[in-house]
């Protein structure tokens, strides 16, 4: 892996490509996309993957997120072995899934389960952008729906960390229908008084942004996370004008009234814990 990087650098001697940027965290050093400085990966991990120099929030994988959010050892995973089929017989889909399973050590793009935050029970779903860009197909929809149903049955809150490019192309209309599936479950949960907190992380777009991510009782986001319905490039092509630099960032959404708050990663657990605590003081839950 490291050898590849050096080879490519010799050839081009330019800013690392997207692919290299993604590969670097697996090595010793990481280049910060925020301030371009080179950081020891281990040091970055110590600071919850937030750049100590510029505050850039590097992407977290699902298990890093769980570790960062839940009480140690409290997480119990649900349906870890659920995997995608190939309902449309889409060419190469099975191979791509297999590749991402190896790359990410995950069976699908979301990890779900239950755990505690400062001893308060919660159901949780964490999306992982390393697996098919965090896209939602049947498995992601099903695992999230089952987690909401679990929260409803147990009368505990439901927290989701989103990180997704949207609906998964290779499962076609079935992916689209996962938006409806998770919505019927969320509606029932909500009608039963369930507390739902949505935390949008980089990136949250398309069909995920246009379903559960946007309808939390509380909508939070990490700083600078890209959040939006349509892709920036498509919008630029459609309206033929340049978009502001902060377009579709968490801060942009906050300014336009689409978010309750933008929360630094270091404060995330504390904030979630406080919300759960406030809710535990009233009503049945």
């Amino acid at each position: 892996m490291l050898k590849d990087i050096f080879n490519k650098k010799k050839k081009y001697a330019t800013v690392p490509s997207e692919k290299i940027k993604q590969d670097v965290p697996e090595g010793i050093m990481t280049k910060c996309p925020g301030c371009k400085s080179i950081i020891y990966s281990k040091e970055l991990e110590k600071s919850n993957k937030v750049c100590v120099k510029c505050g850039y929030h590097h992407q977290m994988n699902a298990f890093e997120r769980i570790k960062n959010t839940l009480d140690e050892g409290s997480f119990e995973e649900f349906n870890a072995g659920m995997i995608s089929e190939n309902p449309l017989s889409f060419p190469d889909y099975v191979e791509r899934l297999e590749k991402d399973r190896k790359k990410s050590s995950l069976n699908e793009a979301v990890v779900t389960g239950e755990g505690t935050i400062n001893s308060q029970r919660t159901a949780i779903a964490v999306m992982d952008a390393r697996f098919r860009m965090g896209s939602m197909g049947s498995v992601v929809g099903e695992k999230i729906t089952r987690t909401i149903e679990h929260a409803d049955k147990e009368k505990i809150p439901f927290i989701i960390f989103t990180a997704s490019g949207g609906a998964r192309m290779q499962e076609g209309v079935l992916s689209l229908m996962q938006m409806a599936k998770s919505s019927v479950a969320l509606k029932r949960f909500s009608d039963n008084g369930g507390l739902f907190i949505s935390v949008m992380t980089h990136p949250t777009t398309g069909g995920v942004s246009a379903s559960f991510a946007s309808v939390g009782d509380y909508n939070f986001a990490e700083p600078k996370a890209m959040i939006g319905f349509a892709g920036r490039r498509i919008i630029e092509q459609t309206i033929r004008e340049d978009l502001p630099e902060d377009f579709q960032t968490a801060e942009f959404l906050l300014n336009h009234g689409q978010l309750d708050s933008v929360i630094h990663r270091a404060d995330m657990k504390k904030t979630l814990s406080t919300v759960l605590m406030i809710h535990s003081k009233g009503g049945d839950r």
Binding site: G81, M82, S138, E142, T145, L174, M177, K181, A185
Partner: peptide, 10 residues
């Protein structure tokens, strides 16, 4: 809607 989707287990 609950029943839409295809998946299996490993």
């Amino acid at each position: 809607y609950r029943n839409i989707g295809q998946y299996t287990f490993v």
